[in-house]
Design a protein around this nucleic acid. Structure first.
Lengths: 203, 203
DNA sequence: CAGGGCGGTTAGCGGTCGTTAACCTGAAGG
DNA sequence: CCTTCAGGTTAACGACCGCTAACCGCCCTG
């Protein structure tokens, strides 16, 4: 449970650069030599750390999905855990939105990969990722229907997917420097997400 | 201005299948033999219709961007053109949203390609596509700021990009059959888009 | 100080890919 | 009836890619 704030291990360097390159040019558009060059070693040296190119993508996608789900579960538990002072479902929804926005703003390449290169995985890995993604969606759907009980489940699920589309649009918002500031962007996205959900709930 | 309701020409068949395959497996993940097989000819026969694989992608992406922009301009002109009975900026915004939703629901592969494979284009084509996309965005921004004049331009632009993310999420909403019906989905997306914009405007 | 293994290197193999070359066929036109 | 040509075919080439093989040096440890 330590290892953070340490210098990044070589595996982590590789994963980070691979994520960036995959997001920029697509999984098939990046050669192993380029990934190696991005971390200062060249080509086949990567195979001391990963079984192959596929394994890097698999670890990235499983990691993203797992991290999103774990974070959401934690936020849900924190909300339910505070005995006595129930924050209300609206606050839980806000917390989920906030967590997703943090992820979308801080790990743009991963967000990009997450819904783009899933089909390049081996069957077992793809099933795992899809299962994690589905759990994440269902968790949001549950919270959303606590806030807006009148919304039928299929609509809620569609709404959640659409809001993910909205929040995951950060890669299109220009380079990290051209934004009006991270906090401002986060607040804007948050309000839009709530507004989109509200429009569903008040139907 | 005829040619529609005719049998699709071979070029059109190829473009349609290529779009589907590119969207499913990525530009680099599809071989020319597969594209050929999808239209009943095999491999190099495609070169009787296109200069190369890149040319197919270019024609697809330019076509999408141009079609989106042209449709939006037409809707804007229709609104401004009705002398006397100005429909109001809100109705124009609704019309833009409706047009984009139609596109997202009817041409899912193209929507997918549109923000995914842009970097695979030659410089000249990429610049053209980006220019068309930019015009499309600015057109939306203008209309949005008529509806919500208090929204500063950078926020409006971010909001437009985010709503595109929302509307373009249709590929994630399950296969075309599993949806609650096209009209229902379209209405849901429309309300969410308006809700998201309203949340920005009422800030 | 011997040795072992971690983390690199370069060379090269097998397969695939985009593209070209050369050839063929069936239908239209004078 | 001969020609032309659009629209196919198969063969093959050169480039590239993922991956393995073989080798090597450095550091750690007994």
């Amino acid at each position: 449970m330590a290892t953070r704030t340490d210098a990044p291990t070589r595996r982590e360097q590789i994963l980070k650069e691979a994520a960036r390159l995959f997001a920029e040019r697509g999984f098939h558009g990046v050669g192993v030599d380029e990934i190696g060059a991005a971390v200062g070693i060249s080509g086949p040296g990567l195979y001391r750390h990963f079984a192959g190119k596929d394994a890097m993508l698999a670890e990235l996608l499983v990691g993203i999905s797992d991290s999103l789900l774990t974070g959401a579960k934690r936020r849900l538990a924190e909300a339910d855990g505070v005995t006595g002072s129930d924050p209300g479902p609206g606050a839980v929804l806000d917390s989920l939105i906030e967590g997703h926005i943090d992820f979308a703003l801080d790990d743009r390449p991963l967000i990009t990969l997450h819904d783009r290169e899933l089909d390049r995985l081996r069957d077992a890995d793809r099933k795992l990722v899809r299962q994690l993604q589905r759990q994440y969606v269902e968790l949001w759907v549950g919270v959303l229907r606590e806030v807006y009980p009148a919304v039928p489940e299929p609509s809620a699920r569609s709404a959640v997917h659409s809001v993910f589309g909205l929040l995951n649009s950060t890669p299109h918002l220009g380079r990290p420097g051209s934004l009006p500031g991270r906090a401002v962007t986060a607040a804007l996205l948050h309000r839009m997400a709530r507004g989109a959900f509200a429009a569903v709930g008040e139907g």
